[in-house]
Nucleic acid binder design. Structure first.
Lengths: 334, 334
DNA sequence: GTTGGCACTCGGTATCATCGAGTGCCGAAC
DNA sequence: GTTCGGCACTCGATGATACCGAGTGCCAAC
């Protein structure tokens, strides 16, 4: 059952007010808010209905109302297209992307800071997966008598490193030879196909064998390197229980949790996950806004923010939208 | 003026008790604590003296005493050599370093997690500086029509990346040629000396020129890549004001602050900085324990923990000591 | 359907008394 | 002169009580 227009308006007003003040909002406030031109008694009646239908909740009798998840959901769904960012913020985004330069990782890290600064919530930026990229360069570098480093440069600019342990008596020539073999066979492959390659040389050359083994590490471990979290401190101020802050920080620290969270949210076609919609108990009072970004027309990675359920959705949605779009553009240029 | 033995014992007891309970400790508690065999009245007299001399403080009349910074300082100085870790923790460290493998960055990151897990405070691990290392490998990889990546592998295992923008019409041969020139001139240099190199080729080859320019970025920026912070969430639970937690997190996020903090502390020959000794106002209620670690006998980097002033110093000191030593060993092996 | 009016609820705040851990100090004992 | 028991005192914490007021639900009137 959908809400009649006035009820919808009242609901929106309650959510907006609560987001602003973090205080339960009563019928009086709503009545005096612009847009609703009915008496507080009427508002009360409608609010009672809205509560029965699960959009609002009373912390206790004779207090104002607070939105439920369903209430936030309605509010968010009714927002429509994100409005443009405030002038100052838009300016900040522009100047960031015009100045942005340098290397991929650095850029993603800075982007997470930008987004955190714009929204005042924690921001997550997930880099492009390596799966689609191809290997552009393979280098085997001797570091110490028993240690070499396998350095792969991917076409998307990601550099992958793997330590290779050597037998005691390995000389540089053998290392160079192994490097050449690896380069010859790996360049142009994707990480996935590379992981499946077997080489006849493996049997005779332990260096090659170990290098190939290193390429078969679980992709989970790789995900960690692609996650950049910024502004975790900012969302601390949105909560009042230290224990809760600690729990949320823990989730952010376990980056793979964040990665799977973001993936889940996108899989379900969601851009906003509210409270328990995130699927994580400690995030019951949090919301997540996610957007993918495209590089050269292909979905590449995603960015998102994590804030309290009573986050400023319009502003945060706008910020995520514009940053994801700009980031994609910036990375597409080449 | 130094303290007579009994006063010292009482002071130690107060600090230990306060660290344990986070509650002001009264004369009764101290008197009944093992080690001090005098009545509470005597303890009271001594505590009054200790307060006059600045080791203790009363939150308010008729409450127990709380250590001042000077009190903590005495406690820490009196600790002497760190006692060995508890069995379980020692076991954890051993198994970590026996399993530890893989690539430098990953290892440092994991070490910061280990240390955070051992102490339940935030842990910082700072990687070896590049200054001392020499360049082992130079690779220029074309990524896109107008973009190449300069990849340097340092002798300490660090991989440095710099984006290089290319003119529109650059073909692969010219990139390879520039790469060869760079490799020839840079391999064996330190980053410092490399930054000073000028080449005659720069005039004729814009690629070489830009690559050299990229090597001259401020070292501050490089520091960021070498800092690994683990367990920031853990120290949240040591405080009760969300605002304070937020401030401390902010400091941790600004990694360069942490780097300079650690450097300062080490410069002053300190291993423990208590409260305002850290030199940072928001850390007035925090203490920092730092230790350097050596690779092949040379001071390489440092590790540390950041916790509340009433942190468990004996345990944290022990953890920092053993981890720094083990980490150095592990990285020395080659 | 909307509105003003009204009795009611109940969390928040202030006031006040009580409690008790802890103090400082004094005078006696060793 | 150092230690210790005793004692009056302080003051935060705790709990009871009252009060206020924002907010509610309901009803009768428009």
């Amino acid at each position: 059952m959908s809400l009649d227009e006035r009820k919808a308006q009242i609901l929106r007003a309650v959510v907006a007010e609560y987001i602003d003040t973090a205080q339960p909002v009563g019928s009086g406030r709503v009545a005096s808010a612009s847009g609703v031109n009915v008496s507080s008694a009427t508002v009360r009646n409608d609010m009672a209905t809205l509560e029965q239908e699960g959009y609002l909740r009373q912390p206790h009798t004779s207090a104002g109302r607070v939105p439920t998840e369903k209430g936030y959901r309605f509010f968010v769904d009714a927002l429509g297209d994100p409005s443009p960012l405030a002038g100052r913020d838009a300016q900040q985004v522009r100047s960031f992307f015009s100045k942005a330069h340098g290397e991929l990782e650095e850029m993603l890290r800075d982007t997470s800071r930008l987004l955190a600064g714009l929204t005042d919530y924690a921001a997550v930026v997930i880099g492009p997966p390596n799966e689609a990229a191809t290997i552009r360069s393979v280098q085997l570098v001797a570091l110490a008598p028993q240690l070499a480093l396998l350095v792969l440069v991917m076409s998307n600019g990601v550099v992958e490193k793997h330590s290779i342990e050597l037998a005691d008596d390995t000389d540089d020539l053998r290392i160079d030879a192994a490097g050449a073999v690896l380069a010859h066979r790996l360049i142009g492959e994707t990480p996935v196909s590379a992981a499946q390659i077997t080489m006849v040389e493996s049997a005779s050359d332990p260096i090659v064998a170990e290098a190939l083994a290193a390429l078969r590490v679980q992709p989970d471990d790789k995900d960690r390197d692609r996650v950049f979290i910024g502004g975790a401190s900012r969302m601390a101020s949105s909560f009042d229980a230290v224990a809760q802050v600690s729990e949320i920080l823990q989730i952010l620290e376990q980056q793979y949790v964040v990665v799977s969270l973001v993936r889940d949210v996108l899989d379900r076609g969601l851009h906003v996950a509210i409270g328990t919609e995130t699927g994580m108990q400690p995030l019951a009072d949090c919301s997540v806004i996610v957007a993918p970004y495209d590089i050269d027309g292909e979905a590449a990675g995603s960015i998102g923010v994590l804030g309290p359920t009573r986050m400023n959705y319009p502003q945060a949605l706008a910020a995520v939208a514009v940053v994801s779009q700009r980031l994609g553009n910036r990375l597409s240029e080449g």
